[in-house]
Design a protein around this nucleic acid. Structure first.
Lengths: 269, 269
DNA sequence: CAGTGGTCTAGACCACCGA
DNA sequence: CGGTGGTCTAGACCACTGC
């Protein structure tokens, strides 16, 4: 029978440092669902595992670096809230978050929500070319104004649950967490400048002389590809902001472009 | 008379933690040019400043995190080589680095290198609107093919040195380090999709239906704005790649676009 | 007030590296 | 081999938080 909770004893003869074993055991207990809301303090862990406080601090330094727990002086240590971990979800997520942060109303028009095959996408997801995929196409609106076209492909296994969800207001990653207990923990994005197709121009209410950002995204959870996404974002109102050294990676922001041409503010002659 | 080198004593009554004072003093000595090549070890510093080794470790943890020094078990600690610090320089730098990494020949055509005024840019740099600025306009070529148009404005104080430098092959940040001992340590970038102006299309050999990425960048060294830059990058061959969680932030990559339309690989019907 | 993490000390043993 | 950083211990005092 497997031990699934409770504290394990540490092996002092192991090649692994004590703090690493402690870090691993705490991670296991966190995954097992212990510490719901409450997390033990440094002194308590030192007593529990019979190690010095410095050893505990070294293990917790990692846990904090991973964004898993939050410990501040004086306060009771706590598990990091979901939104405190979600930082590294990427530019697309950041965009939609920043829209809400700007106090704008957000809504999607679902244009397609069905099972499809697509050999190119299937191979990106590591599946057979003919395999059925769940496909979701949405136009994202901010205050009823089109922002982006979002096309998502996922392995067909998600389809049964997702075909009947109303994605007008529902976050896909929230559903993923709720229905399958999956959290995106790794992704790779490719961001390009494009001139949108006529169809996308129509969906986005864009003129023929406007550029757009295209973001292609492959997201994984537990080392398994979960989603391939292609998002076309209006280029006239949105931009990507990056800080170096990055405080929180990069983020999308509403650009304060006042109708003027992009070249007008910095003439080069 | 100012003390410019040698170790200072630490104030144990200060509100600043000992490790922070130590970190500050070591940073000062590093800037003063001590430790050329050799950096003292933990035990030596503990004896020198009369603090415990843990305090030294806390200070050095920061220095290592800043990428200023490199300390590995067994080896003598050393100052980080220039290339070991340069990671967080941003998308533009990353682009030009990736071109060289791909084994391509890199060259610039200097189209302008002079003193200019520009009120908008001056205010971005925190200067008076009428102040003279050093201006450098280059077309970046990779294997003799145009990649990007790069326009740089810097405070006029740099002009005297920079007006006579040949920037055909010379890196601006290298000159900044060499002539003024300044290293960019902070920057903010804004990345947008645009349709280039007719002039930029001509410079980049782009057709009228091509989009481009525009990167605006404000870079600082020692808390002082040093550069405002606007770079227009061909949208048909280059894209921004981002990993989450970011191993090295994001980076520009040569895209393997084989002439095909961007939509051709993923039809949505 | 009790409990938290932040800071600090003064020791210790070890694995690893370069000479 | 001597010196390095990695790890670990067993104490200590303090500022801050929440009750």
């Amino acid at each position: 029978m497997e031990r699934t909770s409770g504290s394990a004893t540490l092996d002092r003869d192991s090649a692994l440092p004590l703090w690493a074993q402690l870090h691993a055991d705490l991670t296991r207990r966190l995954d097992a669902g212990e510490f719901e809301g409450a997390f033990p303090g440094e002194l308590q862990l030192a007593k529990e595992y019979e190690v010095s406080r410095n050893t505990v601090r070294e293990a917790m330094r990692r846990l904090r670096g991973d964004g898993v727990i939050v410990a501040e002086r004086g306060r009771r240590p706590r598990l990091a809230a979901a939104h405190e971990i979600e930082q590294p979800l990427g530019a697309v997520y950041s965009l939609f978050a920043s829209v809400e942060a700007a106090g704008m109303q957000q809504r999607s028009v679902v244009r397609s929500q069905e099972m499809r095959t697509n050999s190119k996408v299937a191979s990106q997801l590591g599946l057979d070319p003919g395999e059925k995929l769940f496909f979701l196409e949405r136009v994202r609106l901010a205050d009823e104004e089109p922002l982006a076209v979002d096309r998502v492909w996922m392995p067909g296994t998600f389809g049964a649950e997702f075909l009947t969800v109303d994605f007008t207001h529902t976050a896909l990653y929230g559903q993923l967490l709720e229905c399958f207990s999956l959290r995106i923990d790794d992704s790779r994005e490719r961001i390009r400048a494009i001139v949108p197709t006529k169809q996308d121009r129509r969906l986005l209410d864009l003129g023929p002389d406007q550029a757009a950002l295209a973001i292609e995204r492959l997201a994984s959870a537990r080392e398994e590809p979960v989603e391939w996404r292609r998002t076309i974002i209006r280029g006239d109102r949105f931009s990507l902001i990056a800080d170096f050294p990055p405080k929180s990676g990069y983020q999308f922001d509403l650009a304060k472009v006042a109708g003027a041409s992009h070249e007008s503010d910095v003439k080069s002659s």
